[in-house]
């Protein structure tokens, strides 16, 4: 089983065609090389963070904080997120502490191509989700 670092180096080495046009800037977080930050070109404001546990690789993209939600729109927002959760390709909504996120989980037995696909899709999902749900945000 390759390490997360090796897998991510593999993602960085993919050719343009395999990456389907997405450029990745892949950097370990300073001080914690178990978390890798990926910036997808054109979407620098929404970095994707990749980390691995025993069984899965998690790709997480933060969306908004609890404090960005319109005061009386929270229930509606949560329902919209639940409704969108299944159709959204490869990603799901989640919450970590007081931050909402989209994330994708992949088995640790995966390939660089799968991860690249996941990363590009996740980043696009994040942009689309904020765009679609911004009416509930301050």
């Amino acid at each position: 089983m390759p390490s997360l670092k090796t897998l991510m180096q593999g993602v960085g080495a993919l050719d343009e065609e395999t990456r389907k046009g997405a450029d990745f800037d892949i950097q370990p977080l300073p001080g914690d090389d178990e978390v890798i930050q990926v910036i997808i070109n054109g979407q620098e404001e929404l970095p994707v963070f990749v980390t691995a546990s025993d069984s899965q690789i998690l790709c997480i993209c933060y969306l908004w904080g609890e404090d960005e939600i319109e005061a009386d729109a929270k229930l509606e927002l949560l329902e919209a997120m639940l409704d969108m959760n299944i159709p959204m390709p490869l990603s799901s909504f989640g919450r970590i502490g007081n931050k909402y996120a989209v994330f994708g989980a992949i088995s640790v037995h995966t390939t660089a191509i799968e991860i690249a696909h996941e990363l590009a899709t996740l980043s696009d999902n994040a942009v689309d989700a904020i765009d679609a749900l911004s009416e509930f945000l301050r």
């Binding site: 977080l29 980390t51 998690l58 970590i96």
Partner: peptide
Amino acid sequence: ESVQKATRSI
């Protein structure tokens, strides 16, 4: 735990 650890680093 690994998500929380990552969150702290982030």
